[in-house]
Design a protein around this nucleic acid. Structure first.
Length: 495
RNA sequence: GGCGAGAUAGCAAAAUGGUUAUGCAGCGGAUUGCAAAUCCGUUCAUCCCAGUUCGAUUCUGGGUCUCGCCUCCA
């Protein structure tokens, strides 16, 4: 039984889809005027994990993650850059896809862009107006009349009175109530034609909140199963979406609201406005993308997650342990080749390849499907963890116990199962040696140089010149290369 | 000020009304020429004060502290 923490009731609930075995999930995506930072990475990775789990669990899921490609910041940035809105947003959409791909995030089934759904937004605004929930103000903007909607505040747990008490914005505009929000912004003369659409209320462009309501409804229906996003969107964005969609359709909008926690820096939320953000691409210059994905998935999705180099280093070390287990296990598909007589070294070194562990590894050899045997004990615990509100942290703990099992008792079967299970989280699918040797610094040793040093060390060892052998190992370590001797050869990895 | 979330060992991070979380680090041992990796064993914990209970880190109440939202924000 899958349980989901529903922000609407602030408790875990059994997940019951509207249509049996089908799921509609909408997640608020990015406003594309700049590169994505780690906070954006968390939303993408977390909901990717959830998306994958639904699929694995046999649901036919439709995942929508929108793109906000019209908004004040975009207009401002385009003007600053002297480029068109379209050129700017396309550039950052491409960048976002690059970042997401690097992190192993599957593409959602739909990535609607706000500018392509303006007619649907206008339809919804018209409905709201018919229901007396929208009005055009003196300045031409069409606003939502918050006081006319009974359930306002039910998601964020705020009442209009509470909100008024904490009122910080002094509204000098023509809203009937300071808490009313804009549905349609009337065009200004200074703005480019590119950002103006015709409407019954005059030329203008949509407000942010109506975008998601309209796109979600169009692609998933007036009522759908899951709506997600960062915890900061709970209010006002998601509250306003509810007001719009339920106001327009007169029935419930979303059954389960899911919100992921923030990425913090020194215990403070990483955000644009605080300026304490790290872009995904900057972090990826220093850390392997899979390490970043692992770092995110190792924490529960609702917990705060502190970012620092120390934390990423820690994640890297942990992931290295997992890959090491994979590396040391036999392959299910390729038989172990015979090593030369009496394990004599050096073995013949192929051109361009380092002296490798001579046997193929599970990760390197086992290509393909990796079907999980869900009756196997680790898989059962893994499944129980994931079914309990997507507890990937617990699921990863199971992976570590599995790694211990694989190390102790290597078998092709357990290794394949281990790898398949990790694959459910989008982890551990690479060749382990490639992972362990990745991350070469620009000025570091290349593979050929490392191979040469290892060959030299093996020769020194055979001559019982251990001082020389140790010097070589020490020098390599100083260059970030760790050597590991085994009965079958010497392997290396980057520290 | 209002509303919400949280405080777990040196660090990170799960879970739980009584039984080993997990990873890194530490300590002892096996293995190794020595290491590394791996394995075995092991030290270290549940913010404070009451209450409920045979028993609470876990439930209830109070307190302290932290964070988030209340303005754009993943």
């Amino acid at each position: 039984m899958l349980k989901i923490y529903n922000t609407l009731v602030r408790d875990k609930q059994e997940f019951i889809p509207i249509i049996d075995k089908k799921v509609g999930m909408y997640v608020c995506g990015m406003t594309v005027y700049d590169y994505c930072h780690l906070g954006h990475a968390r939303v993408m990775v977390v909901f990717d994990m959830i998306y994958r789990w639904f699929k694995i669990s046999g649901y036919d899921i439709t995942y929508v993650r929108n793109i906000t490609d019209i908004d004040d910041k975009i207009i401002k940035r385009a003007a600053e850059n002297g480029e068109s809105i379209h050129a700017l947003t396309q550039r950052f959409i491409d960048a976002m896809h690059e970042d997401a791909d690097a992190l192993g995030v599957l593409r959602p089934d739909h990535e609607p862009r706000a500018t392509q759904f303006v007619p649907e937004m206008l339809d919804m605004i018209a409905k709201l107006e018919q229901h007396g929930l929208a009005y055009q103000a003196a300045d031409g903007d069409v606003n939502y009349a918050v006081r006319k909607f009974d359930g306002y505040g039910k998601l964020s747990g705020k009442s209009l009175e509470d909100l008024r008490a904490g009122e910080r914005v002094n509204v000098a505009d023509s809203k009937h109530d300071p808490l009313d929000f804009v549905l349609w912004k009337s065009a200004k003369d200074s703005e480019a034609e590119e950002v103006k659409w015709d409407s019954a209320w005059g030329k203008g462009r949509p407000g942010w909140h109506i975008e998601c309501s309209a796109m979600g409804t169009k692609l998933l229906g007036e009522r759908f199963d899951i709506h997600g996003g960062g915890a900061d969107l709970q209010f006002p964005h998601h509250e306003n979406e509810i007001a719009q969609s339920e106001g327009a359709h007169q029935h419930q909008y979303v059954n389960y609201w899911m919100h992921n926690g923030f990425i913090n820096v020194d215990k403070e939320k990483m955000s644009k406005s605080l300026g304490n953000f790290f872009t995904i691409r900057d972090v990826l210059k220093k850390y392997d993308a899979e390490v970043v994905r692992f770092f995110i998935l190792r924490a529960h999705y609702r917990s705060p997650l502190n970012y620092s180099n120390a934390h990423l280093d820690d994640a890297k070390g942990a992931l290295t342990r997992l890959y090491t287990a994979l590396k040391n296990a036999p392959s299910p598909s390729i038989p172990l080749p015979q090593v030369g007589e009496g394990s004599s070294f050096p073995p013949s070194v192929e051109k361009g390849t380092a002296i490798q562990f001579p046997s193929p590894t599970c990760g390197g050899g086992a290509r393909g499907e990796g079907a999980v045997d869900w009756n196997e004990p680790h898989a059962q615990r893994f499944q129980a963890a994931m079914d309990d509100d997507f507890n990937s942290a617990e699921a990863i703990a199971v992976l570590f116990e599995f790694a211990n099992e694989v190390n102790r008792n290597p078998s092709a079967e357990s290794c394949a199962q281990f790898k398949a299970l990790a694959g459910v989280l989008g982890l551990l699918q690479r060749d382990p040696v490639a992972f362990l040797q990745s991350g070469a610094p620009e000025d570091g040793l290349d593979d050929a140089a490392i191979t040469a040093q290892i060959t030299a060390r093996i020769a020194a060892k055979q001559a019982k010149n251990y001082a020389e052998a140790d010097n070589i190992r020490k020098a390599l370590l100083a260059a970030g290369i760790v050597l590991e001797d085994s009965a079958t050869g010497t392997t290396w990895r980057r520290a």
